[in-house]
Amino acid sequence: MEWLERITRLRRWTRGGERDPHKALLLLYAIGQLQRTGFKPIRFREAEPALELLFAEFGPPKPVGPAQPFHHLATDGLWEVAAAGGRPSPGPDRDLMTAGDVHGRLMPEFVKEMLADPVLLSQIVRILLDTNFEPGLHLDLCSAAGLLPEVAQTATVARYLEGHLPRAERDPTIRQKILVAYDCRCAFCGYEGWIGNSVIGLEVARLRWWAFDGQDDLTNCLCLCSLHHRLFDKGVLGIVPSGKILVSRHFVGTTEASKRMVNELNGRTASPPQPGFARPDVRNIDWHTRQVFRGPARI
């Protein structure tokens, strides 16, 4: 269990609710490379473009270059870094790493145990996903990191990690509560849909992510359609305490459908829950704006 303990410590080092998933993203990328190409060094200069894309898509709005986690992950006992000829890493300076032909690799003992025990590999991937990202992003992230999607499907992690995963309790009835509070309508676009007696296409969207102590309650959740939920988790959409909807300037959508379903939301007021139900807490809205929304917003 030594490796699982080291993986969980990566999460415990984050402070103040700030997202810092860059080491986790590097590990997921390295495990994806291990699965697809075998155990061999990863050259920084070759991996940098792919890591930049991963960080941009799944990291927080504040940009961090790949050089820092590539160098600093070695302090966690999971990764080792060296320059050409076996020389030590020159440090986290991107230009020096490129000039020195720096390469990194997962620790050989770590790799040996993962390859010998597929369940361990799955547990490690699941921990990295559960402690850094919302569940709706997991499959997209596995694909972007080059991971085989089935590695994230193990259900044994929660039992081992009792006391280590985020302390927020999952509420199995939260979707029903949110549907009632928002009258079975998307708070952003008003969509509603049914098939028989089942509501379809409406989901619970958290402001503060579960991985960062986001609670499953009305003060932290919105009712959104599947499209707007995905865009909300990706930072394309946001919201301010007054209820005004934000659309990121970084979003590009040229078709009339994109303009109608996304761009035209900018500046609209989201539908509040029905009277008698709690509204989203300003602190949770602020967390999403700082840690997820990819500002600036459109004017």
Rank of each mutant, 00 (worst) to 15 (best):
M107W: 12
M107G: 13
M107Q: 14
P108R: 06
P108F: 05
P108K: 03
P108M: 08
P108Y: 09
P108A: 07
E109A: 12
F110R: 01
F110E: 02
V111W: 04
V111L: 08
V111Q: 03
V111T: 07
K112Q: 13
K112S: 11
K112I: 00
K112C: 06
K112E: 11
E113I: 01
E113V: 06
E113P: 01
M114T: 08
M114L: 14
M114G: 07
M114K: 12
M114H: 06
M114P: 04
L115T: 08
L115W: 06
L115K: 09
A116T: 12
A116P: 05
A116Q: 13
A116H: 08
A116L: 08
D117Y: 09
D117W: 06
D117E: 13
P118L: 01
P118Q: 01
P118C: 00
V119W: 06
V119D: 13
V119N: 13
V119S: 10
L120Q: 03
L120I: 00
L120M: 02
L120F: 03
L121I: 01
S122W: 01
S122L: 01
S122Q: 02
Q123E: 15
I124T: 06
I124Q: 01
I124A: 08
I124L: 11
V125S: 00
V125H: 08
V125Y: 11
I127K: 07
I127S: 10
I127E: 10
L128V: 03
L129P: 09
L129V: 04
D130I: 14
T131A: 15
T131C: 15
T131L: 15
T131N: 14
T131I: 14
T131G: 13
N132W: 13
N132M: 09
F133L: 11
F133D: 11
E134Y: 13
E134G: 12
E134T: 12
P135Q: 08
P135L: 01
P135T: 01
G136K: 05
G136S: 12
L137G: 07
L137M: 12
L137F: 01
L137P: 09
H138E: 05
H138V: 09
H138D: 05
H138F: 10
H138Y: 09
